[in-house]
Simulated scan of single mutants.
Amino acid sequence: MLYKLNLEHILFLDIETVPQKPSFTDLDEVSQSLWEQKSQYQRKEEFTAEEFYERAGIWAEFGKIVCISVGYFTHKGDVRSFRVTSFHGEEPKILNQFKQLLKDHFSQTKHLLCAHNGKEFDFPYIARRMVINGINLPYKLDLFGKKPWEVPHLDTMELWKFGDYKHYTSLKLLAHVLGIPSPKEDMDGSMVKDVFYQENDVDRIISYCELDVVTTAQVFLRMRNEELLSEDEIKKV
């Protein structure tokens, strides 16, 4: 089935998120209490709610999106390219720009969204943050009433499961086992909060996010047994 998909109909994406506030003490009392309740199961007795706040960015109720990077294939004759771009700034701006991209270029039935662990994280996170910010959901993220086969989402982690519902594989590990060259990264997901709030280095976050988009596309190509992208084929716009 993967072989039948037109690569130009797929929008690959990745998001980077951080806690809504720089620290737990910046939250109001109600939010602190709700965070303590929300995180109780995950942190158990190992961490206090304040210590565990470092991880708040992974929950849409307590985090926010600071970058959405996307990539898509284009073909002109025999020339293939993969164009990558990013949205950053204030979260409502990011979400509205991403929504506009979907509306203008990826709104047809044939178009699909693809991310690694996207069905569990990226897609619902974006949708929840849109609702929180009062933004109407674009068709590609509004799943109400859709049958499973009508949901326009691809997930490279799900594809790798091959029906094994309990299996989790990171993008980095999957790229490694598939022989995809790993670009030099100067950060990982656990560092995004500090890079954003302490270093104010959004460009560094964007570069990291875009690398994940490219790697997701590379994994997808390998799963179709196609030639990987070369550096010359990757265009940042």
Rank of each mutant, 00 (worst) to 15 (best):
I206F: 04
K119V: 15
E226T: 06
T215Y: 00
L5F: 08
Q218D: 05
H111C: 09
G77N: 14
Y168K: 14
G118Y: 08
I132D: 02
I205R: 06
L2C: 06
G134Y: 02
P183W: 04
E210G: 10
E227W: 00
E36Y: 03
I68E: 13
F98P: 02
S207W: 00
H111P: 01
P124W: 11
F73A: 11
N225P: 00
L13T: 13
L102Q: 06
S86L: 05
I180K: 10
R129K: 07
K38Y: 14
H75E: 14
M187L: 08
I10E: 06
E199M: 05
A175C: 15
E227K: 08
F121G: 13
L221A: 09
G63M: 06
V214D: 01
I94N: 02
D104S: 14
L34Y: 02
I180A: 11
I135H: 07
F123V: 03
L5K: 07
T169G: 01
T74S: 05
F62S: 08
I65C: 15
S190R: 04
D194N: 09
H116D: 11
L113T: 11
D142H: 10
R83V: 13
L228K: 05
Q40G: 04
I132H: 07
G63Y: 02
M130S: 13
I234E: 08
R129I: 09
K119C: 12
E227T: 13
F162A: 12
M1F: 04
E51A: 14
F52P: 03
Q32D: 05
E45Q: 12
D203M: 06
R80G: 03
W35E: 08
K4C: 14
N225E: 11
F52I: 05
F98R: 08
V18K: 05
F52Q: 07
S33Q: 14
H176C: 04
Q108L: 13
I94A: 04
D104E: 15
G57V: 01
P138K: 07
G89M: 03
A60W: 00
R204Q: 12
A56Q: 04
L178N: 07
